[in-house]
Design a protein around this nucleic acid. Structure first.
Lengths: 345, 345
DNA sequence: CTGAAAGCGCTTACAG
DNA sequence: CTGAAAGCGCTTACAG
């Protein structure tokens, strides 16, 4: 029946419906300029013939590619984590984009932010995408300079607002998250804590550092912070360091699930009981936080929601609306069994 | 200097270089039809002006969009796993595509394979992509029927060769993997084993079932297989069932890291020592296999290599070469501490 | 309301 | 080797 002939164009439809190409175009795009009768007939014929607008032709004539460009950094597998964050973010993004028939144009770059710049530049010059989404922004990230010098390009940064000044930004409340964790430990009676934080190149690491430091100062707590990549080996090593340290902390906050799981395991291997002797908290509430014994108290972030909100902001950007900095949803603390009141000696 | 004017077209370059548009096109595309001098001058001018071919225009005229369409299924978060597989696969794919200036056009569908079909159909009719990559293929997957009825569309399936008959396929050696695991346990003296397998809708689950059953039969071993989603809760429950079972197995093979970690934890909670009382093996050698105590013996698969090979096959498909079924690289067994010789009672 | 025409930026036979 | 011209499929002022 509807055997899709090689390619059906608007001309074929016009011929079949007995009208002009322009009438078909108006009808198909719901624009005025055709009578209701003509419109109905054209729609019927187009559907019957299985017509779909040719993507390239449409893009060329209306200057919209209907795609959002995303360059994922996979360079340093070390800092990349499992990719679960990016995946969830893309899932949320894709969901919002669907409604407007937008797709994601994806590249994965092993060359870091600089190589990503090259790709973005290419996309800008070739008109390959309508807007860019920038994730995993580092301090002094060249991608910020790039888009500052290309105001004609539309880009949204997911980054701490502290560093993306001026650029359209979806910013996290990493600082608030940090404070929330410190308060949770304070409520449990902890006074000497530590953090196994992420690499210092990351802007969000510094924001978390700041939040924790401020809240500790306010509450009169002591906090030792060690930085390292999001690797199990690093988490284990840093945990060892903290446990060997003179003034042993009664609680450790880990910046990611990978290091938290490693810390848990390191403690177990040394005979340090969690949560009796040591409380452990993880950022990134992921399935692995539920697979440990004890289950990990974790800071939950709805990453899909970030993707959705990013999608909405990007579409507004594309529609020519002005977009400034907007906040992500706040974090939620998932209290499980890896944190407990500190034992009075 | 090279201030990128709004948009630089081939016409601008032609004017600046004092030649015709066609000369510019020939020069830029390395085609014959221009003298070396003209070519050199055109290239210089184009570079100086920061010209890049307009993506849509090029696609429209040469019928190549330079993008590969991928629809990721996120419908049932239950069976989706962490998304790490998809991420690695895309990373490998992207790497190969880079060299030919191809991008990935990505959509994530929450409606399963049927909704994915709709997207692929749209891509076929609109000429949005040059070829399609199909992952996570289920038994009787409607996407196979779709591409069978659209021989004009180019698609590569990553699926067991048993089910994709005729279609271009990159097939895994799941059966061989299964056999490898069984042999490893046999070598350690295990004779009564069990499997916590994935959902039976998945073709690869059945292939693994078959491989394990055949090898067990050959070696005179007994194997109980339970199926369930790739969820920690399911892994825990199935592990409980197996341990409560009359004839308790001395080893369990889990189809994914999530269930393996859950099984490990369940054993620990019941006081069943791993590996002394029970050996545990995981498919999907992932970072989490290294975060457990003991570390998990696991079947390693170079997923990025799958992505790369898929990319090469897709490019050949696009180039008009014929592509049939080709095998992935074989699995590697990573022997760690969760498997040990069975203790003679 | 409707049709003929030009244009989006590039490629590619086709005559000079 | 080089230029003028038509065409890819769609959109959009512009005359009827």
């Amino acid at each position: 029946m509807t055997t899709p002939k090689s390619t059906i164009t608007i001309t074929d439809v016009a011929k079949a419906a007995g009208v002009s190409k322009s009438a078909v175009s108006y009808a198909l795009n719901g624009k005025p300029g055709v009578s209701d009768d003509t419109r109905a007939k054209v729609l019927d014929v187009a559907r019957a013939m299985g017509w779909r607008p040719n993507s390239a032709a449409k893009s060329l004539s209306d200057a919209h590619t209907r795609s959002i460009g995303v360059v994922l950094l996979v360079a340093d597998a070390e800092n990349f984590g499992s990719g679960a964050y990016e995946m969830d973010c893309l899932a949320g993004l894709s969901k919002v984009l669907d409604s407007r028939d937008y797709s994601i144009t994806l590249r994965m770059s092993a060359g870091g932010a600089k190589a990503a710049c090259r790709i973005h530049e290419d996309w800008i010059a070739s008109g390959k995408v309508d807007a860019h989404l920038v994730l995993n922004v580092a301090l002094g990230d060249p991608r910020m300079a790039l888009f500052r010098s290309h105001p004609e390009a539309k880009a949204l940064f997911v980054a701490p607002r502290e560093i993306s000044g001026g650029l359209p930004t979806l910013y996290s409340s990493d600082s608030d998250g940090s404070r929330l964790l410190v308060r949770h430990l304070h409520d449990l009676g902890h006074r000497t804590i530590a953090r196994i934080a992420g690499p210092e190149e990351y802007a969000h690491t510094l924001v978390r550092d700041r939040g924790a430091a401020d809240e500790c100062a306010r509450l009169g707590m002591r906090c030792t912070t060690l930085h390292g990549p999001y690797l199990a080996s690093a988490g284990a090593q840093l945990c060892d360091t903290l446990l060997d340290f003179g003034e042993r902390p009664t609680a450790i906050i880990c910046d990611t699930d990978v290091t938290a799981v490693a810390a848990l395991r390191t403690a177990a291997a040394r005979g340090v009981r969690v949560p009796e002797d040591l409380s452990v908290i993880s950022w990134d509430d992921s399935p692995s936080c539920l697979s440990t014994l004890p289950e990990l108290t974790s800071l939950h972030c709805d990453v899909k929601a970030i993707g959705r909100k990013a999608g909405e902001m990007l579409l507004r950007l594309i529609d020519g609306e002005s977009v400034e900095a907007e906040p992500e949803d706040p974090y939620t603390l998932m209290v499980r069994s890896s944190t407990a009141p500190v034992l009075v000696p």
